[in-house]
């Protein structure tokens, strides 16, 4: 009984979200998002989990808005900011680091407001990690040491199939999001998933 009610409610929630989303972004709904887009959406979600919730010390004073809406705090590039955020955003925008040579140019654009300018020379080393790792992978390929790299060390997928666990709250989850394939357990979690994860990262 509980199950059936939950199922009905979830179905309703899904209908609701469809309606709402159609207004926002009809394309997202019409096309069944393909597998690579799903993966990308998930990856962005995971990247967001790695973000700091901060602005840079002494640097982005002007951009520091203590009172801005809190949902935006998280995973919002503008706020993820920090010192590296600027360049991170850039590297995301053109997702392939095509201009890997621009090692220090991305940082130069930041106005230096530091009192001791001599210090900031070290910041020429502030390069987005993806660029550095790409360089490193190239070097390993040349030296024939690709077995000893960051890329190679990444854990392989589990030998077990993924469990049916709600990606929002961790309870058993009978439902699957049609857009991204994530699981959710209830209406409440379905809505949370839609609003803060799914759509946010699939557009």
């Amino acid at each position: 009984m509980d199950e059936a009610a939950a199922a009905a409610a979830a179905a309703a929630a899904e209908r609701n979200s469809r309606k709402r989303k159609r207004k926002i972004a009809p394309r997202v709904l019409l096309a069944q998002v393909d597998e690579s887009a799903r993966l990308e959406a998930r990856q962005r979600r995971l990247d967001a989990l790695e973000s700091d919730d901060v602005v840079a010390a002494g640097e982005n004073d002007d951009e520091y808005e203590p009172d801005h809406a809190s949902e935006d705090d998280y995973s919002d590039d503008a706020v993820v900011g920090a010192i590296v955020g600027k360049s991170k955003k850039k590297s995301k925008a053109n997702s392939k680091p095509s201009k890997a040579a621009s090692v220090s140019t991305t940082q130069k654009k930041q106005p230096s407001r530091q009192k001791q300018p001599v210090r900031r020379a070290i910041e020429a080393f502030n390069v987005p990690l993806d660029l550095v790792l790409a360089e490193e992978a190239k070097r390993a390929a040349v030296e024939g040491t690709t077995e000893c790299t960051y890329e190679h060390a990444r854990a392989l997928p589990s030998r077990f199939p993924a469990r049916r666990i709600c990606s929002v709250c961790g309870f058993q989850a009978p439902y699957t999001c049609v857009r991204c394939g994530s699981r959710f357990c209830t209406v409440q979690c379905g809505v949370t998933h839609d609003e803060t994860r799914c759509l946010k990262f699939t557009q």
Binding site: D53, A57, V84, R119, R120, I122
Partner: peptide
């Protein structure tokens, strides 16, 4: 509401001025 600026990004130092401080 304390905020933290961290020099590391995915485990590796990427903000050297901050780390120096």
């Amino acid at each position: 509401e304390m905020s933290f600026s961290r020099p590391h990004q995915r485990g590796y130092v990427c903000s050297w001025g901050l780390e120096l401080d």
